[in-house]
């Protein structure tokens, strides 16, 4: 229960941060990428501010033995640069460039009551579900052949 309440309040803060920063505005995001045209460098300030606070905060938080509302830190330990990571990242960037929406910008954009955000999120969730289903089929096949 405690875990759910903290996640809800922190989500609220995340959503406010995204909306204030301009990350929920696809036109602004696309202009950040448009170095040769109507470049808007604002999003460098978003990334800079977020990274600064997170890097400092993580240094303090991750020194503790466990989080306040859970038994352990759920932090990925994989350090290998593999093909799915790099190909997936490349594909994600293409989609981000086509639409101007990323997942962390699109979810808060739903709160703006803009139909285009709902259309994007519907397609994005379908994309995640599709990729996940394909991966599960492939993993099962690999397990059977081994």
């Amino acid at each position: 229960m405690y875990r759910t309440i903290s996640a809800g309040l922190i989500g609220l803060l995340f959503g406010i941060g995204i909306a204030l920063s301009g990350m929920a505005n696809p036109a602004k995001v696309m202009n950040f990428f448009d170095l040769a045209g109507t470049w808007d460098p604002s999003l460098a300030f978003v990334m800079g501010g977020a990274l600064l606070v997170t890097a400092l905060g993580y240094r303090i938080v991750l020194k503790r033995s466990k989080p306040l509302a859970d038994s352990r830190f759920h932090v990925p330990s994989n350090r290998r640069l593999d093909a799915p990571l790099l190909i997936g990242a490349a594909i994600f960037g293409i989609g981000w460039g086509i639409s101007g929406f990323c997942p962390g910008g699109a979810i808060p954009a739903l709160g703006l009551g803009e139909p285009t955000a709902w259309i994007f999120v519907g397609a994005m969730l379908s994309g995640i579900a599709l990729a996940r289903a394909v991966r599960q089929v492939l993993d099962t096949r690999i397990a059977q052949t081994n």
Binding site: G88, F120, A123, I128
Partner: peptide, 26 residues
Amino acid sequence: IGFAVSVPTPWLVVGGLVVGIGAYLG
């Protein structure tokens, strides 16, 4: 809160699918 979409709706559908697939895979 500033919000504007500069691309046609079909692009959002394609972009959404591509973003979902890429972000999951990556």
